[in-house]
Amino acid sequence: MSEFLLAAAGFVLAMVALGLVRVLRGPDDADRLMAGQLLGSGGIAALLLGGAAIGDGSVVDVSLTLALLAAFASIAFTKFAPGADDGDDAATDPARDHRADAP
């Protein structure tokens, strides 16, 4: 079983790697923002599989933390992405905002 789990983890990681190549190439920042999603799901899957393979139950806690923080990071990234404008969700108080790329 554990061989299989490790193989699956390795496979998922390979998929993540391929996806990362695509995502980081852009061309838009929106593409790059997907990196957080990609790792949020793929990285966690690999972690869970790897953790099950080596029989370490506490890896689940790591995945839990990662799920939360990956969500936090993706949201932060979309909020502060250079393309983000003052749309309905990303608005900040213009008087206080020093964002260099504000329209």
């Binding site: 838009d28 920042d29 929106a30 593409d31 923002l33 997907m34 957080g36 999603q37 949020g40 799901s41 966690i44 869970l48 689940v60 995945s63 839990l64 799920a67 939360l68 990956a70 969500a71 993706s74 949201i75 979309t78 909020k79 992405a81 393309g83 983000a84 404008d85 749309g87 969700d89």
Partner: peptide
């Protein structure tokens, strides 16, 4: 964990899509 990823995926997906639309 799965629910969290789903939730954040749905949300971040929306936000990313908006960024893409603006681009």
């Amino acid at each position: 964990i799965w629910l969290l990823v789903l939730l954040s995926g749905a949300d971040a997906g929306q936000l990313i899509a908006r960024a893409a639309r603006r681009a």
